[in-house]
């Protein structure tokens, strides 16, 4: 009962303090909101890159091309070699799938149409090579799978030749590495910007609470003389910091929603946009809302409470 009574008092004092230091509170909230919006925007961009990347077909397939000069027996030896490699590794769940020259031609036609290339790619003149496709589940395993499959290079056929040259193993590992590099850059830039803004917001909140302490110095002095505990005197200021954090999180969540819905989604859907029609999809805001909400609340409460504690330690001697 005492706890609820004191909490009710502390929360009401926290609210009063927020309104008493109006301008500084607004400044604290604005800077904290900027910090959260930047983090949220980077998070949403990276999430969408991830989703689009994961949804792309054929990225989790490694193709081992069979040289045109290989006989059926040699092709079978390559298959057996690949099968053995696949059987030994859990991250490659399926078997190597043989794709004949004819199937490759059919895929080619499906992809590029039948007209323009028909002089060079047809049933009589088919320069495409048969291949084995090795599919794996998780794109993040691509580097490891390529390493494993490359072991086929060391297998020797019965005629003494190497089973397959490195140039015959085709994968999207480079694409994967490039996208990962872009993601890493975005992460780094996003985290640095957030970190800098977070530090600035800590300073602003510290000063806001310092002003609150200064404005209530007579009250604090009297509270001490009356026998108020240290905890009782300090709590409203911590709650003030926490409230600044919570308000910032709510505002940032709303701004992020507007930015995402009207700016990013609009950009992708816009007919003049470069990325419009490229097949890039944007996931709905609601699918990210829980993570963003929790993230913003954690940042807000962290900044508010930490700034409150620093301010109290520095400026309030009880």
């Amino acid at each position: 009962m005492r706890f609820f009574r004191s909490m009710r008092y502390h929360i009401s004092q926290g609210f009063k303090s927020i309104f008493r230091n109006g301008v500084m509170t607004v400044a604290s909230i604005l800077i904290l909101v900027s910090c959260m919006v930047i983090l949220g925007t980077f998070y949403l961009i990276i999430s969408n890159i991830d989703e689009n990347f994961n949804n792309m077909k054929d990225l989790n397939v490694i193709e081992v091309r069979v040289p045109v000069t290989y006989s059926e027996e040699q092709t079978e030896e390559v298959r057996a070699g690949l099968q053995k490699i696949c059987d030994e590794k859990e991250i490659i769940p399926g078997d190597p799938v043989y794709i004949s020259k004819e199937e490759h031609l059919a895929r080619f036609k499906e992809l590029y149409g039948d007209q323009e290339w028909s002089d060079f790619f047809n049933e009589e003149l088919n320069p495409l090579r048969p291949s084995f496709e090795i599919t794996f589940d998780h794109l993040s395993d691509i580097t490891e799978v390529v390493r494993i499959v490359s072991a086929i290079e060391g297998i020797t056929l019965s005629n003494g030749a190497a089973a397959i040259a490195p140039s015959n193993i085709k994968s999207c590992v480079e694409v994967y590495r490039n996208v990962m590099s872009v993601k890493k850059t975005l992460y780094t830039v996003g985290l640095w910007m957030m970190g800098i803004l977070l530090i600035i917001s800590l300073f602003v909140i510290i000063n806001t609470i310092k002003l609150g302490i200064h404005g209530r110095r007579n009250e604090i002095m009297f509270m001490r003389y009356c026998g108020a505990t240290k905890h009782f005197i300090r709590m409203p200021f911590l709650i003030e910091g926490g409230l600044i954090g919570i308000f910032s999180a709510i505002i940032a969540f709303g701004i992020e929603y507007l930015l995402y819905t009207y700016a990013l989604v609009g950009l992708v859907r816009s007919s003049t946009s470069v990325i419009s029609g490229s097949g890039i999809t944007v996931s709905p805001y609601l699918s990210h809302a829980p993570v963003l909400g929790v993230l913003f609340l954690i940042i807000g409460l962290f900044a508010g409470v930490i700034a409150g504690r620093i301010s109290l330690k520095k400026y309030l001697k009880v």
């Binding site: 005492r2 008092y9 007579n218 009356c226």
Partner: peptide
């Protein structure tokens, strides 16, 4: 406290000891 009434000023001493 200038912004508190007489009643609130006296009550404040009790309130701060919960």
């Amino acid at each position: 406290f200038e912004n508190k009434t007489v009643y609130e000023n006296v009550a404040f001493a009790m309130r701060v000891i919960n």
